[in-house]
Design a protein around this nucleic acid. Structure first.
Lengths: 136, 136
DNA sequence: CTTGAACCTGTAGTCACTATAGCTTTTTTA
DNA sequence: TAAAAAAGCTATAGTGACTACAGGTTCAAG
């Protein structure tokens, strides 16, 4: 009946540290949960969903402020799609620069593999590339 | 003859803030440069090259510790490519996650466009994806 | 030669956690 | 059911990689 669970259980469900959950609560990203007789936090399904959302978004590179906005928009359901659209643009930019980065790393690795007698010229490769697309 | 330049000039050449250079010096990543009569830092070509290497590597997502290692290796010519390879894997994972998110955002946007009268279920969409590849 | 931009040091703040200390509560097991 | 172990609590400090600020000094252009 009581579908309540502890902070440890929640942390495992969301794949994050217990401390992180308490931190999210402190900064107001997670709501204050109920407490047991002895004062320990007791969570339920809604908390887990919210935390999983936060963690997933963090993994995808959104800042906590981005996430706050996303959460807000999900409650105010209105201009939701404009925010989604803006985020889509940000995500696309991120993909583009990461792809460029990956290609560059590939080039580096290949150069190393050609075994120029051990001489891995990482420094030269990495300091030379002015024309490399910057993001910020 | 004197090819020396100031910290501001160096910062422009490397595309970073003056404070960042002083910070790198403080943590021992950049060597202490010469000083002018009045005590201002005076750099030369070698400094610029090193800083450009550091900045470029940072842009590619290497940590300062990685960079310390890379610099050390470049002096002892050992194997730098293992670090590059490790990093490449991380980058690829990130690209995969972001691509998934972008597609998801596209779906959301489209759903909104079909005028399902508001109700954009962002939380559900983003918290559901367990099977999404985790990186760390 | 004056003015203002650039520089100096030192400290504190930021973000998103993570770790520690020193306790209390809850759960397990003998 | 009692004792031991695990998990929880609060509060504070530390991390990485900067960034900002205060309050002063030096340098270069007009």
């Amino acid at each position: 009946m009581s579908t309540l669970f502890s902070i440890g259980t929640l942390s495992k469900a969301a794949g994050c540290k217990v401390e992180t959950i308490r931190y999210y609560e402190k900064i107001g990203l997670m709501p204050e949960p109920a407490r047991s007789e002895g004062g320990q936090r007791r969570y339920h399904r809604k908390h887990r969903e919210r935390l999983q959302f936060i963690r997933h978004s963090r993994e995808l590179g959104f800042t906590l402020d981005d996430i706050r906005e996303l959460l807000a928009m999900s409650e105010q359901h209105g201009h939701a799609d404009s925010i989604a659209r803006r985020h889509r643009t940000a995500v696309q930019n991120r993909i583009r620069s990461l792809t460029a980065l990956r290609d560059e790393l590939d080039r580096m690795i290949e150069e190393c593999e050609q075994g120029h007698t051990g001489e891995c010229r990482v420094i030269e490769v990495l300091s030379d590339h002015q024309e490399c697309s910057g993001d910020h």
